[in-house]
Simulated scan of single mutants.
Amino acid sequence: MTGPSIVVAGGGSAGHIEPALAFADAVRRLRPDARVTALGTERGLDTTLIPARGYPLELIPPVPLPRKPSGDLLRLPGRVRGAVARVREVLSGVDADAVVGFGGYVALPAYLGARGRVPVVVHEANARAGLANKVGARFAEAVAVAVAGSGLPGEQVVGMPLRRSITGLDRVALRAEARAFFRLPPRGPVLLVFGGSQGARTLNTAVAEALPGLVRAGVAVLHAHGRGGQAAPPAPGYVPLPYIERMDLAYAAADAVLGRCGMTTVAEVTAVGLPAVYVPLPHGNGEQALNAAPVVAAGGGVLVEDAELTGERALAELLPLLTDPRRLAAMGAAARASGHADADERLARLVLDIVYRHNLESARGAVGSDDRATEVLRPDPRVWRQQ
């Protein structure tokens, strides 16, 4: 028998694509004979990120999900129908065993196209679920979430699937190499600051104001100020970059983080065991603060509202932490304990188990016997679970 055929729907932004690909990598590790196909559109990063990771990409028409009443809302049903028809073509072509969606405008037609045909599994990355996952969760076989309290029915907390280069990171072993890579001082505390690919004005302003005090305390700063953001004036031990490609080395070089609290950021920072001062976006539905809440409650981080982050507040929060090795170690351990570094494999096992059970039921119906059904489903069903 050929291996399971899994279709993932996580296109659009990196926040949807990366967990989908981390999950796909875990499926391949557990089942080397598995076939994973990604759904995406010509918009966003789909055509760049997905093929680069070695996964076949099937394009469907984009279905933007309007957040407010507009003309786009009136056109939505027609767009959905076209995308759903294309999804069903893909599912048939790859003989799909399951669809796993990660939210966004690719996920909605994927869920609707799979409904009644193959099992659906939903993964919600944020503390508050988006429209696509709210729809998919109504008929999903399982609903996995990164943090509790999504509001989706029957949620199971598995965490956020992450790249193995992050979850398997040995910060101590890479520390010297990482600091040399960024031209940071080999000794002394290092603060890592980042606010997404476009940067964050509040963080950049606070760093500029706090930098003299950090330098006097012997703290070096690795600052990703964003492609459109402003770096602070030059200072000893200050390394500004518009964007950090090697986040694994950035985490290895750092002792603490100052940053936003999107779910991917929180998941990565906790997975590598770094204490953090989290500054949630001041707009949206408040989900960023909720993303960081479990880490803060566990003692692995501090939450500072965007409007309250000044250079003075940054120094007040960071200097006592960065100059106290025992507190750094304790908060780092609390951060790591609050995370889910194995989320990729937990989700993969969940999906593979669902596929196995559905295939077993189908085989039982075809041959009329449990023993014969197990024979049809070779290899040994225990291989599906890879416990």
Rank of each mutant, 00 (worst) to 15 (best):
L222N: 11
H223A: 04
A224L: 04
G226N: 00
Q230F: 12
Q230S: 15
A232P: 12
P233S: 04
P233A: 15
P233E: 11
A235Q: 04
P236W: 04
P236V: 06
G237A: 06
Y238M: 08
V239Q: 13
P240N: 07
P240W: 02
P242F: 03
Y243G: 05
I244N: 12
E245H: 15
R246W: 13
D248Q: 11
Y251F: 15
Y251K: 06
A253P: 04
A253I: 07
D255F: 06
D255I: 04
G259Y: 05
C261A: 13
M263L: 13
M263H: 13
T264G: 15
V266I: 06
A267T: 06
E268G: 12
T270V: 10
A271T: 12
G273N: 08
L274G: 08
Y278C: 03
Y278A: 06
P280A: 10
L281V: 13
N285Y: 12
N285M: 12
E287R: 09
A292N: 02
A292G: 05
A293K: 11
P294F: 01
P294K: 02
P294M: 00
V295W: 06
V295L: 09
V296T: 09
V296N: 02
A298K: 05
G300F: 01
G300Q: 00
V302C: 14
L303V: 14
E305L: 15
E305H: 15
E305W: 12
L309F: 03
T310V: 04
T310P: 05
